[in-house]
């Protein structure tokens, strides 16, 4: 390999590029934008995390100081990490399971009904700002639907300030996020199930598979493993990036940081305080957490149905 590289002088490289110019030319426009707006930001975030940078003065290298401050001296960051992980470990698995379960259940229905339910389940994830309506439902006064309903049922004596109380706000955000989360992964599962060869189910029945749950585990899931992997990536990434729902429903910053997350912590230092080095250190930790968790789950999913 190294010998080959050494032998490749500039001339053979040019020769190679000239002979294979079609794919490079097709790739070039996208690649240019991708390098500038995805690859460069990731790399510069890692470099900036080792500096003090307030935009006005040139960045100054302080090495691990940001990380030391973040992990040892920043209690709000620990709250953000706790909230993010509580959120991710509830919404992630719940929404992933819901995507799979619903896709699997509607797969047994007739074509027309299946299409209608696909739209009903998928619609919230593409409805943009409509989720703000949950703020009306969970409104803290007696006008809020949830309060009004629970008071009339006698389950509550006084209205609860759902989105202002640090004890309830994370729960509401989790509920709304689950409502929003039947997106791309759900469609991938619907599609994956459609692609499973029907003969396999009949062969399975002959081989002694007796109910729908055995069928799911031994036939269906192994067949859609690639879609399961893809769906996991999408759900994990979204679960750890929680911020918009929190900011729009609980405010920024939320009361007593009850709905503060790692991403809102980045916003706090990056957008409000202009401490770009520190914000980059938080972002780098989030990046490592996302990629690490994704790789871990990929490894677990490769064992499905075995």
């Amino acid at each position: 390999m190294r010998k080959g590289m050494a032998m490749m002088r500039s001339r053979p490289i040019l020769e190679y590029l000239r002979k294979h110019r079609a794919p490079y030319l097709l790739l070039a426009p996208y690649l240019l934008l991708f390098l500038v707006f995805t690859v460069l930001p990731v790399l510069s975030s890692m470099v900036l995390s080792l500096t003090y940078y307030n935009v006005l003065e040139a960045p100054r290298f302080i090495f691990w100081e940001n990380y030391r401050r973040l992990l040892l001296n920043d209690e709000v960051f620990l709250i953000a990490v706790r909230n993010t992980f509580v959120f991710a470990f509830l919404t992630g698995p719940v929404s992933y399971t819901a995507c799979l379960l619903l896709a699997w259940l509607i797969h047994d229905l007739r074509q027309g009904l299946r299409s209608v339910l696909t739209v009903v389940f998928y619609a919230p994830s593409i409805s943009g700002a409509v989720y703000m309506i949950w703020a009306v439902m969970f409104s803290g006064d007696a006008y809020g639907y949830i309060n009004s309903f629970l008071v009339r049922l006698g389950l509550l004596r006084d209205p609860v300030a759902w989105l202002e109380d640090p004890r309830t706000m994370l729960g509401v955000i989790i509920l709304v996020s689950i409502w929003l989360s039947l997106g791309t992964s759900f469609l991938a599962f619907v599609a994956g199930l459609k692609g499973v060869d029907r003969d396999q189910y009949e062969a399975g029945a002959i081989d002694g598979i007796r109910n729908r749950w055995q069928e799911l585990w031994y036939i269906t899931l192994p067949n859609i493993r690639p879609q399961l992997m893809f769906g996991a990536v999408i759900q994990i990434t979204a679960a750890l990036a929680v911020a918009d729902v929190s900011v729009n429903l609980a405010g920024f910053p939320s009361v007593d940081y009850g709905a503060h997350t790692i991403v809102t912590h980045i916003m706090d230092y990056g957008i409000l305080r202009f401490d770009m080095g520190y914000a980059s250190a938080i972002a780098t930790i989030l990046f490592l957490a996302m990629v690490g968790l994704n790789k871990l789950v990929q490894r677990l999913l490769s064992k499905v149905g075995t």
């Binding site: 190679y16 294979h20 794919p23 790739l27 690649l31 500038v36 707006f37 995805t38 690859v39 460069l40 930001p41 990731v42 510069s44 975030s45 900036l48 935009v55 990536v233 999408i234 994990i236 990434t237 979204a238 750890l240 990036a241 911020a243 991403v263 980045i266 916003m267 990056g270 770009m276 914000a279 980059s280 972002a283 989030l286 990046f287 996302m290 990629v291 994704n294 790789k295």
Partner: peptide, 28 residues
């Protein structure tokens, strides 16, 4: 050459969100 590197980079970028890069993106 570089095709596999490019594709695995794309798969890798599915594993993190734009929130991670928002500070440098703003600067760029």
């Amino acid at each position: 050459r570089g095709r596999n590197l490019m594709f695995s980079t794309i798969v890798l970028t599915l594993m993190f969100s734009g929130a991670v890069t928002q500070v440098p993106s703003y600067l760029i």
